[in-house]
């Protein structure tokens, strides 16, 4: 009966995940490997292909501030921000569907999201990446890693640590149903700074961890120690977030006119 409960929980989280996140890993991998009847993504690999791509890709967040005349590196950085804000909205909706989450102290709900959202953003970004680049605009475009690396300092290094993490993480070959539970586990971490009431958070996470372990055993019977390997990735994710925050601090120092979205300002303030 306990296993049955864990399977119901896994199914519930997977359904919530599909409702909350429009671009699934399954869709992204189909596009990246050419196993889809949809149009191939527009490949952006230099300034000319970027300009062509901007005409071809229809997406609200391509020009979020309506500033086509902004410098390319800053424009791309702004688009990353807009996508991050949208991701925070999606993750919040997903979190509210984790059984027990909305019954937690409201301050703790805020803390869990504040510390969890970027770890989840970089987990899900890995689904859109391969070693050569990243899908953008819901799979309409593919921006190469080399092009991102060629952007002027300090923007050129901004995505490298995310690619390095993605290559290692994608080697685990998780699918969307695994990721749904893993993301819930990340949100319900009882060791986030400033939590008021840790016990109920740890209780929910224990239940989620049991569901995740069973899910991985059933979905990946030949992959030994996958559960342990995946838990290890949570440490790596914290490192990626720490580096990301350091990059942002550098960018805010060197780019005096750089504005940060108010939602991201809230999240980054006193983060690490």
């Amino acid at each position: 009966p306990e296993c049955a409960d864990q399977r119901v929980l896994a199914k519930h989280l997977y359904d919530s995940y599909l409702k909350s996140f429009p671009t699934t890993k399954a869709k992204a991998r189909a596009i990246l490997t050419g196993r889809t009847t949809d149009k191939s993504p527009v490949v952006i690999y230099d300034m000319n292909s970027l300009i062509r791509g901007e005409d071809q890709i229809k997406c609200n967040y391509l020009t979020p501030y309506g500033e086509q005349n902004e410098e390319v590196a800053i424009r791309i950085f702004h688009r990353c921000q807009s996508r991050s804000v949208e991701s925070v909205r999606e993750i919040t909706e997903f979190a509210k569907n984790i059984p027990g989450f909305v019954n937690l102290d409201l301050n703790d709900q805020v803390t869990l999201l504040k510390y969890g959202v970027h770890e989840i953003i970089f987990t899900m970004l890995a689904s859109l990446m391969n070693k050569d680049g990243v899908l953008i605009a819901d799979g309409q475009g593919f921006m190469t890693r080399e092009f991102l690396k060629s952007l002027r300092k300090p923007f050129g290094e901004f995505m490298e640590s995310k690619f390095e993490f993605a290559v290692r993480f994608n080697a685990l070959e998780l699918d969307d149903s695994d990721l749904a539970i893993f993301i819930a586990v990340i949100i319900l971490c009882g060791d986030r700074p400033g939590l008021v009431n840790v016990k109920p958070i740890e209780d929910i996470q224990d239940t989620l961890l049991q569901a995740l372990e069973l899910q991985l055993k059933m979905n990946h019977p030949d992959s030994s120690q996958l559960f342990a390997k995946l838990l290890q990735k949570m440490t790596d994710l914290r490192q990626v977030v720490t580096e990301h925050v350091q990059y942002l601090q550098l960018i805010r120092k060197t780019e005096v006119d750089m504005d940060l979205h108010p939602l991201l300002q809230e999240i980054y303030k006193d983060l690490y």
Binding site: V88, E93, K96, L263, E266
Partner: peptide, 21 residues
């Protein structure tokens, strides 16, 4: 804490309600 995170707080309070399991 929620006072310092007005937008996050609003996202948590607004929009769609949670699904019962």
């Amino acid at each position: 804490l929620k006072e310092k995170h007005k937008i996050l707080h609003r996202l948590l309070q607004d929009s769609s309600s949670p699904v019962d399991l």
